[in-house]
Simulated assay, not measured.
Amino acid sequence: MSKNVSIKLENVQQIIDDQEKQQINNSYQGKFYIKNDKLYLSYADNAEGIDGSKTIVKIDPERERVLLLRQEPAAMKQDFVCGEKQAGYFKTAYGEIKMAVKTKRLEMEISEKSGLIRINYQVFLGGELNAEHHLKINYKILK
């Protein structure tokens, strides 16, 4: 059974060749459900150029893993496992971009009512370090 949830995303990113940090804050209304001991957040991403793509955050507390999947038109896969570099992709109108993310820190404070996930990670494009990210995901079940 799914429950209504409010989700807040904060992402601070720093492109390696750029001194400025960019902060992105978004809030969503979505669904929360549990399946096979994994927690899921599902919402429509309305950021510019994404046009309401369905996004799913799969939280696996036992394996300390977070998987972020977004569907077309801006499909993306990012797989976060602390200390590991995982292959992923980002699809644009111009084609698919292969990328990898290396998770430097992954912290979870989660329950069936609310949660906070912090992920510090690096993005690699074409094997080269491209950016550093500090992502924070907050969720809270709505009554």
Rank of each mutant, 00 (worst) to 15 (best):
Q71M: 05
I15P: 10
M99D: 11
I56F: 03
A74Y: 04
A93P: 10
I24D: 11
Y28R: 08
M108A: 05
V81D: 04
E10M: 02
Q22H: 10
L67R: 11
D18W: 12
K136I: 00
F124D: 08
E10Y: 00
Q22A: 04
L129F: 08
D18R: 13
S111C: 08
I16F: 04
G126R: 05
Q86R: 13
V101T: 14
E112K: 15
D17A: 13
V101F: 01
I16T: 11
E128V: 05
S53A: 15
K91D: 14
S114C: 13
D17I: 07
N36E: 15
D51E: 15
E128H: 09
Y33A: 09
N26G: 05
G95V: 06
V5L: 07
S42M: 11
K113L: 10
E112V: 03
N130R: 12
I110A: 06
S27P: 02
A44T: 08
R105C: 00
V66A: 01
L9D: 03
P61M: 02
E72L: 00
A93M: 13
Y139F: 14
R70S: 04
Y28W: 09
K54G: 06
Y94N: 15
H134D: 10
L125N: 11
V101I: 04
Q13R: 12
V12G: 02
V12N: 07
R70Y: 02
E62A: 11
L9F: 03
F90V: 05
F80K: 05
I15N: 14
A100C: 07
A100G: 08
S53R: 03
S2Y: 12
I7A: 04
A87L: 10
I97L: 12
Q23K: 12
L68I: 11
L116E: 03
A93V: 11
V101S: 11
I15M: 09
D17T: 14
Q71Y: 00
F124E: 11
R70D: 04
V66I: 08
L39F: 09
V12Q: 08
K54D: 15
L69F: 01
Y40I: 04
I24M: 13
K38H: 09
G126K: 07
P61G: 04
G52D: 13
E132S: 13
V123N: 12
L106C: 03
E48A: 09
K54T: 14
D18P: 03
R63G: 02
Y94T: 10
E48L: 08
L67C: 05
K8V: 02
F80L: 07
K21E: 14
I24H: 14
S2V: 07
A131F: 02
K136L: 01
